[in-house]
């Protein structure tokens, strides 16, 4: 699945001055499935906005966004739902977990839509990410780092061509972050999926094929 942005500039970034190497000057790029893209920028330069556009969450931008050559301007809600179930997965910066549900329930909420992971898969992933003993806790009672890992497992509980990750390691220690990055890379490779990950400019855990500076 190919994602193409053409002359894209989100409305909130229109008034801002962008440096000469900024992606927002042209706003044009084709994301090739199977490649890893890294978006690097300090806060407030539009990293989350860019991922939100790719996920169909934001539509307040100039230019056009096409999936497999078809513009997404008038894509109906049902098709977006289908894309989010089977083609594009997203680990949100705000995580968007249901705080009053347990870890298992949060994952099940996604997994029952897709039937992608078995209980063993979930336990094994949670074990790798060191949250196996936390899964039966309510998400709201976990630390932010644990919640980040829970959100990652939930994002992997579906088939996808693209995995969008918005600062996924911001609250995870280096060792766990490396394990998480390995898990992401191996799952993406296994599925032949592309990956777009944002970071502030600090340490990179995923080896990227392309870097986009905002």
């Amino acid at each position: 699945m190919e994602l193409s942005l053409s002359n894209v500039l989100p409305y909130p970034l229109k008034e801002m001055e962008h440096h000469s190497k900024s992606f927002w000057n042209a706003g044009t790029l084709q994301f090739q499935q199977g490649e890893v893209y890294e978006i690097i920028a300090p806060s407030g330069r539009g990293k989350t906005t860019l991922l939100d556009i790719l996920f169909g969450k934001r539509k307040d931008f100039d230019g056009s966004y096409a999936i497999n050559g078809s513009t997404t301007n008038k894509l109906p809600l049902q098709q977006w739902a289908a894309l989010r179930r089977a083609h594009i997965s997203y680990v949100f910066q705000g995580l968007r977990l249901f705080k009053h549900l347990t870890g298992v329930e949060n994952i099940a909420l996604k997994n029952r839509l897709t039937g992608c992971l078995s209980d063993n898969d979930i336990t094994s992933m949670a074990g790798k990410l060191a949250i196996a003993d936390q899964l039966h806790k309510k998400a709201g009672l976990m630390s932010f780092g644990q919640q980040q890992r829970l959100a990652l497992i939930r994002a992997l509980a579906q088939p996808f061509d693209w995995l969008l990750l918005d600062e996924p390691f911001s609250h995870i220690d280096r060792e766990t972050a490396e394990v998480a990055a390995d898990l992401i890379t191996s799952v993406c490779r296994e599925k032949g999926a592309g990956c777009i990950v944002t970071r502030l400019g600090n340490e990179s855990f995923i080896t990227a094929d392309h870097q986009i500076v905002l």
Partner: peptide, 9 residues
């Protein structure tokens, strides 16, 4: 949140 997870409206 459910919509973003892929649930249909």
């Amino acid at each position: 949140q459910l919509i973003l997870l892929g649930y249909s409206h």
